[in-house]
Nucleic acid binder design. Structure first.
Length: 440
RNA sequence: GCGCCUAUCGUCUAUCGGUUAGGACAUAGGGUUUUCAUCCCUAGAAGCGGGGUUCGACUCCCCGUAGGCGCGCCA
C-alpha cells in the first residue's frame, strides 16, 4: 500500500512554527518513502477561516517548498458526508442521540466501557489506557455541525491516509479517533506524535511570545532553506553529527524512529547562526534580489549606481549578514552622502581633539598616492599611524566612522577603494568641517 | 483531581548495556585582522533523585520529583 500523509491545519491567518514543523516532518516522511503528501484545510471554523487566512497558509507552504501532491481538500465541503456518516454510526449503535445540557439534540459517540485501548506510536512507542478512563464524546453538535474528531477521521478515511504525523497534543484524541475508524469498519492508520516546540522559557507558545509565526521569520529575512533545516532538527536528528543539510539529504535521512519524543526549545540564536551560513552560501543573484528589496524599503536605493559598484557593495555585505532585516540599517553610506552617524561611534572616534586635522591630513596623503587601492591606502594609514604614534588602529577607527558613520562593517580598505578617492576625500573633508563647526 | 506522555552540557542533539558520554549553537580565552563578520585553536559545560535487573547501566523496570498534554456541543 502506498504511503499517504497529510498536513491538516485550520487556517487562522498565521501559521505557527509548531504547525509548520509538523508539515515539514510529514513532507519529509512522504518524500523519503516516495509517498504522497496532501494538504487538507480544516476550515470548519467559519469565523477564522477567511480567504486571506487560507491564502497565507498556501503562501507559507509555497515559500518553504512544502509541495503537495494532490489538490487541497477543504473540510467544509465534506459536511454532508460527515453528517451522513454520523447517521450511519447511530444506526449501527456506535453513536446515539442525546439532549445534553438542554441545548437540543446532539450525536454522541460511544467509547468502549471495558478492556483497554492501545496503539503503537511510531515515535512514542506503545500507548495505552483503560477503557474506563475514556469518555463518550459529541460528534455532531446540537446545531447540526460535525465536531473535529468526526470530520478529521472521516476525511482521513476518504483521503486514504496511512500515517498520521502530528503534534503530541493529540495523543489523547487518538484513542477517540481509533474508535471511530473501527466503528467505520476501517483499519486505523499508523500514528506518530511529535514533541511540542516550546519558547525560550521552555513554556508552550502563547500569544504573548510573538515571533512564533512563519511569516515573521520571512519578514525578518530568514531564508526558507534555513528555517526548514533548523525546524527539521527540532525533534529529529540524522545522526553522524550532521546539521547543515540540504533538502535532499534530509529526505534521504528522515525516519520516524530517529525522532525524539521530548519537547524542544526554539533557540533563535542557533537559527540566526544557521541563517547566516545559508546567506553566505547564497548565489549572488539571489542575494542581490533580496538586498535590493531591503535597501529600497529602507529608502536608500539609487538606480543610477553602476552595476559594478552594486556588486562590490554586496560582496562586502553578504558575508556578514545574518538575516536580511539587518540590511537597510547598515548600508546607507554605500548609497548616499547623507548617511546617519551612530552616536556612540561619533563620540568615541570623532569627538576627540585633533580629529578634523587628522582627517584632513589623510585626505592630503591620499591625494599623493599613485594608485588608490587596498595596499596603498593601508600603507598610507600605517605610515601616518606610526608617524603619530597612534598605530594603525588610531587612524582606521576615525576614518571608518567618518566615512561610514558606523564603527563596524567591511574591512576599511575594501570600503575606501569601493567608495573611491574622490568620495572618500569629500566625506573626510566634510566631516572635518562639520566637526569644527560643532554640527556633528 | 483523574489519565496519558516526557526527562543527557545554558540550548538543539548523538549514544540503540561496556565510550575519556561525541557534535553544533551560545559563552570564555587565544591566533589572524583596522572594526564587525568569517576562519583556526583552546576551555568550561550534562546523564533529575532513589531503588532494582545485570558481571556491567545514560541506556531496561519500579517509585518519586519536575514539566508538558488531555479531560469542550474548540480545532
Amino acid at each position: 500500500m502506498s504511503i499517504r500523509v497529510r498536513f491538516a491545519p485550520s487556517p487562522t491567518g498565521n501559521v505557527h512554527i509548531g504547525n509548520i514543523r509538523a508539515a515539514i516532518f510529514n513532507w519529509l516522511f512522504a518524500r523519503h518513502l516516495g509517498g504522497a503528501f496532501l494538504l487538507r484545510v480544516e476550515d470548519t471554523d467559519r469565523e477564522r477561516s477567511t480567504p486571506e487566512a487560507i491564502r497565507t497558509l498556501l503562501d507559507v507552504m509555497a515559500w518553504l517548498g512544502l509541495t503537495y501532491d494532490e489538490a487541497p481538500v477543504y473540510q467544509s465541503a465534506q459536511r454532508a458526508r460527515h453528517l451522513a456518516a454520523a447517521e450511519e454510526l447511530v444506526r449501527q449503535g456506535h453513536a446515539f442521540r442525546e439532549n445534553k445540557e438542554g441545548k437540543g439534540e446532539c450525536i454522541v459517540f460511544r467509547m468502549p466501557k471495558e478492556g483497554k485501548v492501545e496503539y503503537h506510536d511510531l515515535v512514542k512507542g506503545p500507548i495505552r489506557k483503560k477503557a474506563e478512563d475514556t469518555q463518550d464524546f459529541v460528534i455532531v453538535r446540537s446545531d447540526g455541525n460535525p465536531v473535529f474528531h468526526l470530520a478529521n477521521v472521516l476525511d482521513d478515511i476518504d483521503m486514504r491516509i496511512t500515517h498520521i504525523i502530528r503534534g503530541d497534543d493529540h495523543v489523547e484524541n487518538t484513542f477517540k479517533h481509533i474508535q471511530i475508524f473501527r466503528a467505520m469498519g476501517v483499519e486505523p492508520p499508523q500514528y506518530a506524535h511529535l514533541p511540542m516546540i516550546v519558547n525560550a522559557m521552555g513554556k508552550p507558545y502563547s500569544k504573548r511570545d510573538g515571533a512564533a509565526f512563519v511569516g515573521e521569520f520571512r519578514d525578518q529575512g530568514f531564508l526558507p532553506e534555513a528555517l526548514f533545516n533548523f525546524l527539521a532538527l527540532l525533534g529529529w536528528a540524522p545522526g553522524e553529527d550532521r546539521e547543515m543539510l540540504t533538502r535532499d539529504e534530509m529526505v534521504a535521512a528522515f525516519t520516524l524512529d530517529r525522532c525524539k519524543s521530548s519537547a524542544a526549545r526554539f533557540d533563535i540564536k542557533k537559527l540566526t547562526w544557521m541563517n547566516g551560513e545559508y546567506i553566505r552560501h547564497l548565489p549572488l543573484a539571489l542575494f542581490a534580489a533580496e538586498f535590493e528589496t531591503r535597501v529600497r524599503a529602507g529608502g536608500w536605493w539609487r538606480d543610477e549606481l553602476p552595476v559594478a559598484e552594486r556588486v562590490g557593495i554586496m560582496a562586502l555585505v553578504q558575508p556578514r549578514t545574518k538575516f536580511f532585516a539587518e540590511i537597510p540599517g547598515n548600508c546607507a553610506y554605500f548609497f548616499h552622502e547623507e548617511y546617519p552617524f551612530d552616536a556612540k561611534s561619533l563620540e568615541k572616534r570623532l569627538h576627540g581633539p585633533g580629529v578634523p586635522e587628522l582627517l584632513e591630513a589623510v585626505v592630503a596623503h591620499f591625494a599623493t598616492l599613485p594608485v588608490f587601492d587596498h595596499a596603498a591606502t593601508e600603507a598610507a594609514l600605517r605610515a601616518m599611524g606610526d608617524e603619530r604614534g597612534v598605530g594603525l588602529g588610531g587612524m582606521v577607527h576615525p576614518v571608518r566612522v567618518a566615512v561610514s558613520g558606523l564603527s563596524d562593517g567591511p574591512g576599511l580598505f575594501e570600503l575606501l577603494v569601493l567608495l573611491g578617492r574622490e568620495r572618500v576625500a569629500n566625506r573626510l573633508l566634510r566631516v572635518a568641517t562639520r566637526l569644527r563647526a560643532g554640527s556633528l
